[in-house]
Amino acid sequence: MTEQPTFDPRFDPAFQRGYEPPARETPPAPAEASGPDGAPTVSDKPREQPRPAEFAPAVEEAAAEPSQPEPSQPEPAQPEPAQPNHALSNSFERTLGVVAAALVIAGVSAALWANNSNYNGPGQTWGWHQALQSVVWALSSPMITVGLATGVGLVFRRAIVWELRE
C-alpha cells in the first residue's frame, strides 16, 4: 500500500509536490483539434483541472464572481504578490488629524488664557497662578507649531501616497 501524500489544506493541491491528477481528467487531445496549418482552435485552450472535493466550494465561489469574465481560463500558477497598502486613509491618520486640530485649538486657547490672565490676574504676587500662566504661555507656541506641522504632514503623506499609486 502506497502512502498518500499529505497536502497543505491552505493551498491548492494541484500546485503541491506529489500531486498527480486523475487519469480521466486529462484525456489526450484529439488529432482533429487543431485547425488548418496547425493553428490553435478553441479546443486547444488549456482546461481547468477539476479539484478534489474539499476545494469544490471555493471553485464554485470563484466561478460565481462577476469579476472573472472567462472562467475557463486556468488560474495563475503563483498567487499574486501582496500589494502594499497605499490606502489614503486609515485609523491612525484620522487620529493624527484629530490630534493636530486639538493641538492647534488648545494652543490658541492657552495663549489667549495666558495673555488675558496677565492683565486680569492677581497681580505681581508670585503663586501657582503665575507659574501656571508661565507654563501655559511657554507651551502654547510649540503646541500650535506641532499641530500645524502634523496637519501639513498628513497632506504630505497623501501627496506621497498619490505618487506611489501613479
Binding site: 494652543g107 489667549l112 495673555n115 488675558n116 507649531t145 499641530g147 500645524l148 506641522a149 501639513v152
Partner: peptide, 17 residues
C-alpha cells in the same frame, strides 16, 4: 491675540512646508 499666537508657528510651518 490669536494672530499674535499664530504668527510664529504659522510662519515656521509655512516655510517648512
Amino acid at each position: 491675540q490669536i494672530a499674535g499666537a499664530l504668527a510664529l508657528p504659522a510662519a515656521l510651518v509655512g516655510i517648512a512646508t
